[in-house]
């Protein structure tokens, strides 16, 4: 299946799901003629139409167009399956961060995130990386919490001491 075909099919699925949710929006006595469902439904229909157009075009050109595809500069993804797994691993680092930051606190969790991401991307683990991660987390803490005054979670530490 070509990427255009896959995107078209995905578009139809998204449009259908979104339409169903839009149709479930309750009506209100304060509503206008267009109503809260009006534009969402229209968006879903337009998306479905565009998706079908893409599906149709990719089916038509699949055999007719033997020329190699010019790679789009936005796309940097060569081999899908392995690559998707790698990407999900990277995403998981962020998800774990969100899960642990309320308990471990901003500095420790962020140091962990930097450490994990550097290791994941660089494939090496050593003292220098750990040092940079810890130093980076402290710099970020100084920057965001101390200087900008953004209340990042302190974690359980203040209750322990």
């Amino acid at each position: 299946m070509s990427r255009d075909l896959a995107f078209g099919v995905a578009g139809v699925v998204v449009a259908a799901g979104y339409y169903r949710m839009a149709a479930a929006i309750p009506t209100s006595a304060l509503a206008d003629a267009v109503g809260p469902q009006g534009l969402p439904k229209a968006y879903a229909v337009v998306l479905a139409a565009l998706s079908l157009l893409l599906v149709g075009r990719s089916l038509r050109t699949r055999n007719a167009d033997p020329r190699p595809r010019i790679p789009d500069p936005e796309s940097r993804i060569p081999d899908p399956r392995f690559h998707l797994l790698r990407a999900l691993g990277m995403l998981a680092i962020g998800v774990v961060y969100i899960a642990v930051v309320p308990w471990l606190g901003y500095v420790v969790a962020l140091a962990g995130l930097v450490l994990a991401a550097t290791w994941y991307r660089g494939g090496v683990f050593n003292g220098q990386i750990a040092t940079v991660a810890a130093a980076g987390a402290i710099v970020f803490w100084l920057l965001f919490v101390r200087l900008l005054g953004i209340p990042h979670p302190p974690g359980v530490w203040p209750t322990l001491f």
């Binding site: 500095v107 050593n126 750990a130 302190p154 203040p158």
Partner: peptide, 24 residues
């Protein structure tokens, strides 16, 4: 890993702990 690196790592960890317990 050079010794200097380890010492600075320890110092950083200490600072890290201080930063975390910084509720006044």
């Amino acid at each position: 890993m050079p010794v200097g690196g380890r010492i600075s790592l320890l110092a950083l960890l200490a600072a890290l702990a201080a930063a975390c317990g910084g509720g006044d």
